[in-house]
C-alpha cells in the first residue's frame, strides 16, 4: 500500500495521484470517497500555504491535479451525487480585463466544493444581478486590478441594492490594490488578500 491519494495530491505528484485515482476506480472504489480524499489533500495544501511552506504556484498546481482527477471520477458518479456547498457568482468587474487572480479563486472554490458561476471579465453590474437572481447564490465575489474597477464594484453593489438582493447576498472583493478602504468605498462586506483567504471567506459566509 503506497501513500494515500490525499498525500499524493498534497505532495503535487501529478502522475502518481492520477494513477492512484484510475486504479481505485478500476477496483470499484466509491467515487465520492475519492473526491473526499482529494479535498483532504487540498485542505493540506491550504494549510501548507498558510504556514508559508507552499506558495501560489503550488496552489495552482494542486488545483490542476484536483481538476484532472475529478474529470476522471465524474463519469462514474450518479447525477446529483457529491452535492455542492453553495452557489457563488464571481467575475472581474466592468472596464477591467485582468483575470489571473479571479481564475485562481474560481478554481479553488470549485475544488472546495462550491458551485461557481464565473462570468469572466469586464462584467457589467446587471449581468451580476441577473446571475444572482437566476442561481439564488448568496455570495458575490468581485475582482479588479485597476483603480477604475473600484467604481464598477461600487456600481455593482448599488445594482444589487436596486434589485433588492443586497440583504441576502454577501459581497467579497479581491485584486491587487483592493483594501479596507476600497471595501468601504464600494459598499462591499470584506476583501480577501489572497486566494486562500477567499476560500476561507466563502466557507465563512456560506456556513460550510
Amino acid at each position: 500500500m503506497g501513500e494515500t491519494l490525499a498525500a499524493l495530491l498534497a505532495g503535487l505528484r501529478e502522475e502518481e495521484a492520477l494513477a492512484e485515482v484510475r486504479g481505485a476506480l478500476d477496483d470499484g472504489r466509491d467515487p465520492i470517497s475519492l473526491v473526499e480524499e482529494l479535498r483532504e489533500g487540498m485542505s493540506e495544501v491550504g494549510r501548507r500555504f498558510e504556514a508559508g511552506e507552499y506558495f501560489l504556484s503550488e496552489l495552482i498546481m494542486s488545483a490542476e491535479i484536483f481538476k484532472e482527477a475529478v474529470a476522471l471520477i465524474e463519469p462514474r458518479m450518479r447525477a446529483g451525487e457529491g452535492g455542492s456547498k453553495g452557489a457563488i457568482v464571481i467575475g472581474t468587474v466592468k472596464g477591467d480585463i485582468h483575470d489571473i487572480g479571479k481564475n485562481i479563486v474560481s478554481t479553488l472554490l470549485r475544488c472546495e466544493g462550491f458551485e461557481v458561476h464565473d462570468l469572466g471579465v469586464d462584467v457589467p453590474p446587471d449581468a451580476f444581478v441577473r446571475k444572482l437572481e437566476e442561481t439564488g447564490a448568496r455570495l458575490l465575489a468581485l475582482s479588479g486590478l485597476l483603480t477604475l474597477a473600484f467604481d464598477s464594484m461600487k456600481e455593482t453593489v448599488e445594482a444589487l441594492e436596486g434589485a433588492g438582493l443586497r440583504r441576502n447576498v454577501n459581497v467579497i472583493l479581491g485584486g491587487g490594490p483592493v483594501n479596507e478602504k476600497v471595501v468601504e468605498y464600494a459598499g462591499a462586506d470584506v476583501f480577501g488578500a489572497d486566494a486562500s483567504q477567499a476560500v476561507k471567506l466563502a466557507n465563512l459566509y456560506l456556513g460550510a
Binding site: L12, E14, L56, S57, I60, M61, E64
Partner: peptide, 11 residues
C-alpha cells in the same frame, strides 16, 4: 499566459 506558465514550471 500565467496559469499555463506556472504548470510548465512543474511539468
Amino acid at each position: 499566459s500565467f496559469n499555463d506558465f506556472i504548470l510548465d514550471l512543474f511539468r
